[in-house]
C-alpha cells in the first residue's frame, strides 16, 4: 500500500477505474475491491458513496433519478458488498495518459535489460500495447540496456528467488567491506536491484538481525532444504538500504547542500543538517569506517570527514595509498 498522499486527481483516477471494475464484477465486497486496488477500504467506501450519487445532468438538467448511478443499498449497508444496479456515461477502462504509458515503458526497458529476463519479445509486445493504449504518444523517456547489473548474477538471482518463494535458507561466503570472507546462513526476504547493483536483504544468523548483502560480494551461494526460521512481525525489511544499529559509529561530514542527494543512502531519515558557511554539516552512522573511505574518496572535493580523527586518518591513508601508486609507477617507468 502506498504511503504517498492521495490527491484529487488520484481520487478521480480511482473513480474512473472503479466503475468498470464494479460493473465487470457485478458483486464484490469492499474488502476484495480494496485489496484489488491496493487501497484502504475507507477509500473504496468514499468512492462508492460518491459514485452512488453521481451522474449526468440529463434532459432536464436536474440530475433526475434515472440520470444517476445507483447501487443495491441493502447489500452495501448491511453486507459491505457493492452491486451497481444502474450505470450512466461510462462502462470501460480509460486509456493511459502519455506520461503514464511512458513511465511503465521505461520501467519495462529496465526490466528487459536485467539478466534474468530472457523474454524480451514479451516485453516488446507489452510496450507496443501500452503505446496503443495511451491517449497520446508516450513522452520521450528511455532506459539503455547497459543500465543494469552484470550478467554473472543471473544464476544467483534465480537461486535466491526460488529460496524466497520456497521460504528456505541459503548459505554463502561473504566478502565484507574490510576485505574478509565469512560464511553466512541467511533467511532471504527480498532481492532488490538499485541502479547497477543487486542487494539481498535477509535475516542473518551470524548477526541475529536483518542485514543487506551486495550480490557481487557473495560467492559459493547454495540453496538448502531447511525452512527459514519464523521471525514474526518484528522482521520488517527496512526501506533504507544500509542497516543502522545502536552500536554504529558516528561520523560528522561537511558538504555542499546540493550534494546531499549523493549520500542519501547513508543519511538516517530526519537527520539534522546544520548550515556552516556555504556548506552543511551532518552526522551519519556507519557500521565501520571502511565503507566510508570509499564513499568519501569517490566524491572528491565534495565531502569532508570532520570527525572522528580515526575516520579522517583512514580516508587520508586510503587516498594517499591510491596516489602513491602513481609516483611509484612513474618512477618504475623512468628506471
Amino acid at each position: 500500500m502506498s504511503a504517498q498522499p492521495f490527491r484529487a486527481q488520484d481520487k478521480l483516477a480511482l473513480l474512473l477505474a472503479l466503475v468498470p471494475y464494479l460493473l465487470d464484477q457485478r458483486r464484490v465486497s469492499v474488502a476484495d475491491a480494496a485489496a484489488h486496488f491496493a487501497v484502504t477500504p475507507e477509500l473504496i467506501r468514499d468512492a462508492v458513496s460518491l459514485i452512488a450519487v453521481s451522474g449526468v445532468p440529463g434532459e432536464t438538467k436536474q440530475y433526475q433519478h434515472g440520470d444517476l448511478f445507483d447501487i443495491d443499498w441493502d447489500a452495501y449497508l448491511e453486507r459491505d458488498t457493492i452491486v451497481v444496479t444502474h450505470q450512466v456515461a461510462i462502462d470501460d477502462t480509460p486509456r493511459f495518459s502519455a506520461r503514464e504509458a511512458a513511465a511503465l515503458i521505461a520501467g519495462l526497458q529496465y526490466l528487459a535489460a536485467l539478466p534474468e529476463h530472457d523474454n524480451r519479445e514479451a516485453i516488446a509486445t507489452l510496450m507496443a500495447k501500452l503505446t496503443r493504449g495511451a491517449s497520446a504518444a508516450p513522452s520521450q523517456l528511455a532506459v539503455a540496456e547497459t543500465a543494469t547489473a552484470g550478467e554473472a548474477s543471473a544464476e544467483e538471482i534465480a537461486t535466491l528467488r526460488a529460496a524466497i518463494s520456497g521460504e528456505t535458507q541459503v548459505e554463502f561466503d561473504y566478502l565484507n567491506a574490510r576485505g574478509e570472507r565469512e560464511s553466512r546462513v541467511v533467511d532471504p526476504l527480498l532481492i532488490e536491484s538499485i541502479d547497477q547493483d543487486w542487494y539481498l536483504r535477509g535475516w542473518c544468523h551470524l548477526r541475529h538481525a536483518v542485514r543487506t548483502f551486495r550480490l557481487d560480494r557473495i560467492s559459493a551461494l547454495r540453496g538448502t532444504d531447511r525452512p527459514i526460521a519464523t521471525h514474526g512481525d518484528e522482521v520488517a525489511v527496512p526501506s533504507r538500504l544500509f542497516d543502522v544499529s545502536a552500536d554504529d559509529l558516528r561520523v560528522q561530514l561537511e558538504l555542499p547542500a546540493d550534494a546531499l542527494p549523493l549520500i542519501s543512502d547513508y543519511v538516517t531519515p530526519g537527520a539534522r543538517t546544520v548550515r556552516h558557511g556555504d556548506k552543511v554539516r551532518l552526522t551519519i552512522r556507519v557500521t565501520h569506517f571502511h565503507g566510508l573511505k570509499r564513499l568519501v574518496s569517490g566524491l572528491p572535493g565534495l565531502v569532508e570527514v570532520l570527525a572522528p580523527a580515526e575516520a579522517r586518518a583512514l580516508v587520508a591513508e586510503w587516498a594517499a595509498a591510491g596516489a602513491a601508486q602513481y609516483a611509484a609507477d612513474d618512477a618504475g617507468a623512468g628506471a
Partner: peptide, 29 residues
Amino acid sequence: SEDSRRAITKLRSLGIETDDAVIGYAPRL
C-alpha cells in the same frame, strides 16, 4: 512513481488476477 501508480490503478480496472511470482523481488532505478 506517481505516473506509474495511476497507470496501475487504470490497469486494475480490468480486473485481471496477478501472479504472485514477484513477491520478494524488487528491481528499481
